[in-house]
Amino acid sequence: MTIFALYNLKGGVGKTAAAVALAYLSARDGARTLIWDLDPQGAATYCFRVRADIEGGAKRLMAKRRRLRGVIRGTDIDGLDLVPADFSLRRLDIVLDARKRPRRRVTRMLELLEPDYDNVFLDCPPSMSLASEAVFAAADVLLVPTMPTPLSQRTLEQLAGFLERKGPQGLEVLPFYSMVDRRKALHRQTCESPDGLAYRPLSVRIPYASAVEQTVTYRSLAPLFGRDGEAGRAFRALWEEVKQRLADRPA
């Protein structure tokens, strides 16, 4: 089982769209895929038309490892399941803090699903908190959608600094440019000169496209993948590149 976390300290960078698109492509490969919506905003849950509601909320869910299995919902996509969000996830830090070894909690819960899924995608809230640390500990790959602007790059540096000090060993950090608007000179320049960044960004860039917005708005992947649009092609290429980077990783 490979665990991918979609994460950025900054919000509004196309994180949920990427999580939904990549999870969909993973399921299309035939991999048994789970997406866990950890963001209290519940955007991924909304996309899959599932009610953002977990009985007993985050506290009850995190109390027993095996409860995770019970809240899983099948999506309308063959091979793709979802753990829905819940508004109480906004207090996930407090829930985790009350537990022993809070940073290991997400890892330990997902261990029970090892036989059921090949790929897991964690859609994380934009913050740097105990919950993020629990996600970093669980993840094999941290996918960081990054807008090509100086401010975004700065948050990437902050993340790198944090992971260097406190991050788990062996976490593969893969930033990629997201919401790229080629009409903007700043975007073009930033994408062309990724030197000096802590991590080499993936070569595929996700464009700023209405198809991405429509996918979330209409709660359907058809605008993205139904016709062969630029954004859909970019996500396909991104998924292939991610898989390639993992395959090339030294054993």
Partner: peptide, 21 residues
């Protein structure tokens, strides 16, 4: 209609493994 895949299922119909191929 949507895909070509290898499917390994339990007698209950639960998909134990699947792979596009």
């Amino acid at each position: 209609d949507d895909a070509q895949l290898i499917v390994w299922e339990s007698f209950d119909g639960e998909r134990l493994h699947r792979l596009a191929s």
